[in-house]
Design a protein around this nucleic acid. Structure first.
Lengths: 334, 334
DNA sequence: ACCGAAATTGTTACCGATAACATGATACCG
DNA sequence: CGGTATCATGTTATCGGTAACAATTTCGGT
């Protein structure tokens, strides 16, 4: 009861060496079929539980892939994570998850912790990191995948899409539908780099298309969600109607804005158009449906899995960059 | 470059024994301050990364707490997970996360994998498990916490609330506001036990209060979300107006239902009332605000952390049950 | 300067699985 | 029936830390 059951115990019980037990419990070896069956039976009877820690230690292969996400509490990142989990659990790989809370310093600390677990690959969300952190991962010969962005100076493999180009799609769409006075609703400067990139892309796209300067509506520190969108629009009051369109950093924010507008009696899209980002479920179900950009979180996950598979199979693949693209999804808010 | 830097290397570089290095790198020991500083400096210079795997192996303490969630892609579970992460990262504990996809068989398999990592505690969502799985965890002297439910036959500690009582709050509220013909919108029988409990509670609460039998609207296999709620109501058409109220298994489903109703031109709550569950963000921001039940996912996480702290501090605490309760949050849909 | 206590560093063995190599058992061949 | 290829099992050493204990140094008080 007190002591834990080890392979040695199982070996003793079947009257064989631990090595044979080890082989019998793993699939891939040449062990007599009857022996294997007996070993497995005894192992089960004794309540033996395999010790991955020892295996990881002995083989120097942890069976872990480390993943950092800005937040789990985001349907898109969660979806990518789900796809990763599903794709990798078949390969017997477990995920070590950490949240950066949208802060690069937190990411550095986190990666330090994760590296101590000796992961076989590192999957990072985004391409913005501290210098210290870059050094950390580059010193090791550890496969790194950055996802959700297309960083200018990648650490290794990349699976993502261009946030900037996605925003241009939106701006062009708004121009086409006759909107000119745009406002961007997003988080305060700083933490959420993806948001910053989107904002800057909107601003510069508007400029290059000859629109008036884009107004910036600050919904508070990242992460911003439904309630922040609603709150900031509520605070503005009917003033907001001076804009033709609210370009929001994400669908939840867009939904929050829309809800606030509707409560004030303003019509979407007649009084103000709204766009979101990320094709969250709410965009499809909201009334009216929110015009958004499909970023296919699931496919990002799958592509990352595929890259990891390649890495694990062939030991030294060239670093790849996969652009999963993005597409405008026109709803009823524009 | 090829070989990894170990404590031995650091020890050699500073001219001391590995043991001293080990002590210097951990905080809590009595090492000369200057020695410690020197060791740390050298370790950093050499790019030494601590190997938690070895530590876990030697000390037989993994530094892991294993957590199973039905799905990461659920704002409430994600919130609980976030609270767990935050609370435990201070204690130097890492979380090992697995998703059961709302299936007990998957849970069993998952727990098997997680146990192989030798976690110091196991945090499970819900109180329904396979027999095999119950044996698995009871054989070990491993602290187990079930959360989000109040199981009749708990495996160990419990932090949760009564789904049944929460649904009674809703039924009573609907009765008070004059509703009698209720329909429950949830997933098909089977996987999501929490949903089943909620449904049964509504049915029996309605009976005991003398209401007509509750109609059951099947939104498809778990997990069900916005789009499933919307789809099933759309499929029903205006027939749905024969009900006084739609009692939904969750806020997202409620939002989907509401959206579908509104698209058909039905008024909420005038034509049909709607209730949700879980106080998701969408309930607060939707228009009208959805009447729901606050379940405080964050507090569940915090309470679990507190129980874990107690477990880690004092080795053998009695098993505790903490009811975090739930409260009706009246919105504008009833 | 000497002694004992406290502070600091060192030595040895070991956690559990498995790679690499060695050995024993069995089958198959002419 | 001897000899070799094949299959099946056993032996030994080891991954990188650290517990437990041992040895050494430092220091204050007399």
């Amino acid at each position: 009861m007190g002591a834990r059951v080890t392979m040695r115990d199982v070996a003793e019980a079947v009257g064989m060496s631990p090595m044979t037990v080890s082989r019998a419990l793993r699939d891939d070896d040449m062990v007599n079929a009857k022996t294997r069956a007996r070993v497995r039976q005894v192992a089960q009877d004794l309540g033996y539980v395999y010790d991955s820690t020892s295996q990881a230690f002995r083989t120097q292969k942890s069976g872990f892939v480390a993943v950092t996400l800005p937040s789990v509490n985001n349907a898109n990142f969660a979806e990518t994570f789900r796809a990763l989990t599903n794709g990798l659990s078949e390969a017997g790989v477990q995920l070590l998850l950490g949240s950066t809370n949208y802060r690069v310093e937190r990411e550095e600390e986190l990666v330090r912790q994760l590296l101590a677990r000796n992961p076989e690959a590192l999957v990072l969300t985004g391409g913005h990191h501290t210098d210290e952190m870059r050094k950390l991962v580059q010193d090791r010969q550890l496969p790194v995948i950055e996802m959700w962005d297309l960083p200018a100076d990648p650490l290794g493999h990349v699976v993502g899409f261009s946030n900037a180009r996605a925003m241009e799609l939106i701006v062009d769409h708004l121009v086409t539908t006759g909107r000119r006075k745009l406002a961007f609703v997003g988080a305060s400067e700083g933490a959420d780099m993806r948001g910053v990139v989107r904002r800057d892309a909107v601003v510069s796209a508007a400029r290059s298309r000859g629109l008036p300067e884009v107004a910036l509506i600050d919904a508070g520190p990242a992460p911003v969600s439904m309630r922040h969108g609603a709150a900031v629009i509520e605070a503005m009051g009917r003033d907001v109607a001076k804009f033709d369109a609210l370009v929001c950093v994400s669908d939840p924010v867009a939904f929050g804005c829309m809800s606030a507008l509707q409560r004030m009696g303003l019509q979407v899209p007649d009084d103000v158009a709204i766009t979101g980002f990320g094709q969250f479920e709410v965009a499809k179900v909201a009334n009216p449906r929110i015009t958004t950009v499909n970023v296919n979180a699931d496919e990002i996950g799958q592509q990352v899995v595929s890259v990891l598979r390649d890495i694990f199979d062939a030991d030294a693949p060239a670093t790849v960059t996969r652009d999963v693209g993005s597409a405008l999804v026109v709803g009823e808010t524009t």
